[in-house]
Design a protein around this nucleic acid. Structure first.
Length: 549
DNA sequence: TGCGCTGGTGGTGTAGTTTC
DNA sequence: GAAACTACACCACCAGCGCA
């Protein structure tokens, strides 16, 4: 693995948000700075349209290198490619084909578009001017032998490693310098947007080579074809610049509690923290390391469901020709299908609480049905395990109107994750000192729920992955439970412990049972939570500290 | 522990629809 | 009519789960 350079603040702070850079964007000198980058020669301003006249790889390189934007590329279809920036309010759409139209949208998109237009106009003006002057100069026989005029003046925008107007510095110095005095700026910085580059533009070479390799290699699909993202990774640019905070898994107190309402106030601090991360620290320790996010839910209409992606079908449309078999024995069924099996709930004397192993909240179908379920059953608290959420999914996307959401995402690998929906009328807060994911991936967010009418209680959503060692009961859950007991409140632990409560002779059951007895916890669920033709199991549990609950 | 199965994810291209 | 946009089918990869 290549050594990673020390993170610098320039990696984190989006250039477009920087005031000084905005001024540069607005200045007319932008084009001159761009001239240093041969990639930008593919950018054309024709009529009222910006166009990109090369392939997608070069456009990606342009966006990453010249515009210095981080983000995600997707292919919405119709030959179009869309880039959504993560460090600017920008969406870029490229319609490849006859027109090669390049569409900038968003606040920063308009700004960048203006800059690109100015660049094109400036570049074309300079090139015209250069043409005339060199034509005149070329009449001078003394100079003719030193010139490689065609390379300069009709510069095919194909030279990646060498700027179009610096084809041969030694031989062209006499000509290019007087005509383009700003050219010297390029030697210091290729672009006002771009990360610092060395003099021979090696960064561009590296990316170009990588892109070529992509083209020549076998077809990249899915996770391997996001070259924009890969480029970011390869260049050690933070993918989640605003939400990355170092995490100390060993110390629960150090788990950051994150309130997105205070994002802006905390950004500078976080940026400094990231910038100071030691070079050798594993990337997983700091990229997107925000295990806990609290979002005050704002009631808005659900805009994440496609207009044609209604919930009429019991399974995602994409599979309608090959629907997921509602075969028995598998846990991937829709919520409707499993609503009578997978949902374990206890109608307490005061609060209606439910737990659900959802196996992906990313699925629109699951999410829609979960919302329907919450609305229909009117739960006060709804706990979810196996959300499979990560930092790519915002809390707003998985909100349920009327509920506050507390989520604890697994970050070091896919899957896992738990979250809790608490009715807004209930005052709820996270017990930060108890909430964390252990090294063995045992999840346990602890939430205090209070209500004037109801007796307050503590909710814990426990999720033990199948590969999580059984000693986590003793080493991970027990200490936190003991600490929660000190608060002298009723405690409810809901979740998927992956211990079959029906197999009282297996070791998992014995260990869990011993833990329950020792902690004086009562398991309320007695009937199987998953039933197939061949098997029955009781994996989802509700444990209470007091039988009076 | 390894294998097979499965759904999620995100890529591609095609075709249809809407907008200007 | 072209551009812009959307929906869809198909494909490959990945990770989790069940099972032998």
């Amino acid at each position: 693995m290549a050594a990673r350079r020390v993170m610098a603040s320039s990696d984190i702070i989006p250039p477009l948000f920087d005031k000084s850079r905005k001024e540069i964007v607005n200045s007319s000198t932008i084009g001159i700075d761009f001239l240093g980058n041969a990639l930008s020669n593919d950018l054309i301003y024709e009529g009222t349209r910006l166009k990109w006249c090369n392939d997608l790889d070069s456009l990606k390189a342009f966006v990453a290198e010249v515009l210095d934007l981080n983000g995600k590329w997707c292919s919405p279809g119709g030959g179009s490619k869309r880039f959504t920036s993560s460090n600017a309010e920008l969406t870029l759409t490229w319609y490849s084909g006859k027109q090669n139209t390049l569409l900038f949208q968003g606040k920063d998109g308009n700004l960048i578009r203006d800059g690109c237009v100015k660049f094109c106009q400036t570049r074309d003006g300079v090139m015209k001017s250069s043409c005339k002057q060199v034509q005149a100069l070329s009449k001078n026989s003394e100079l003719q032998r030193d010139l490689i005029a065609p390379n300069i003046l009709e510069s095919e925008p194909t030279s990646i490693s060498r700027p179009a107007n610096q084809v041969d510095v030694a031989s062209q110095q006499r000509i290019s310098k007087p005509q383009i005095p700003e050219q010297s700026n390029y030697k210091q910085s290729a672009s006002p947007f771009a990360a610092p580059m060395n003099n021979n533009n090696s960064k561009i070479n590296k990316n170009t080579l990588m892109n070529k390799n992509n083209r020549n290699g076998h077809r990249n699909n899915g996770h391997h074809n996001n070259s924009g993202l890969n480029q970011c990774k390869s260049q050690n640019v933070s993918l989640q610049p605003f939400i990355s905070v170092p995490v100390n898994n060993g110390d629960p107190e150090s788990v950051p509690f994150y309130d997105t309402n205070r994002d802006l106030q905390n950004k500078a601090l976080q940026i400094n923290q990231i910038a100071n991360m030691p070079e050798k620290q594993p990337i997983s320790d700091w990229i997107g390391s925000l295990p806990l996010i609290e979002i005050p839910i704002q009631a808005k209409n659900n805009q994440h469901i496609n207009r044609n992606t209604s919930n009429k079908l019991p399974f995602p449309k994409r599979h309608r020709t090959k629907p997921p078999s509602y075969r028995t024995g598998h846990r991937h069924q829709s919520l409707e299908w499993l609503s009578h099996l997978d949902i374990v709930y206890q109608l307490c004397k005061r609060l209606k609480i439910a737990h659900l192993n959802i196996r992906s909240l990313k699925s629109n179908t699951h999410l829609t049905q979960l919302r329907d379920l919450a609305r229909r059953e009117n739960f006060d608290i709804l706990t979810i395990s196996e959300t499979w959420l990560n930092t790519s999914v915002s809390s707003a996307e998985v909100r349920i109107d009327g509920y506050n959401l507390f989520r604890l995402d697994r970050l070091n690998k896919r899957g896992g994750g738990v979250c809790t929906y608490v009715r807004k009328e209930l005052k709820s807060s996270v017990l930060k000192s108890l909430t964390f994911i252990s090294e063995e991936n045992f999840h346990q967010p602890w939430i205090n729920v209070q209500c004037q009418k109801f007796k307050s209680l503590i909710i814990c959503v426990a999720y033990r992955p199948p590969d999580c060692p059984l000693h986590c009961f003793e080493h991970t859950l027990k200490p936190n439970y003991m600490e929660a007991l000190v608060l002298n409140k009723s405690i409810v632990i809901l979740g998927d412990l992956n211990c079959d409560g029906l197999k009282d002779n297996c070791v998992e059951y014995k260990i869990m049972d011993r833990f329950l007895n020792e902690m004086n916890l009562t398991q309320l669920i007695k009937s199987p939570t998953r039933i197939t033709d061949a098997t029955q199991s009781l994996l989802d549990v509700i444990l209470v500290s007091s039988k009076s609950i």
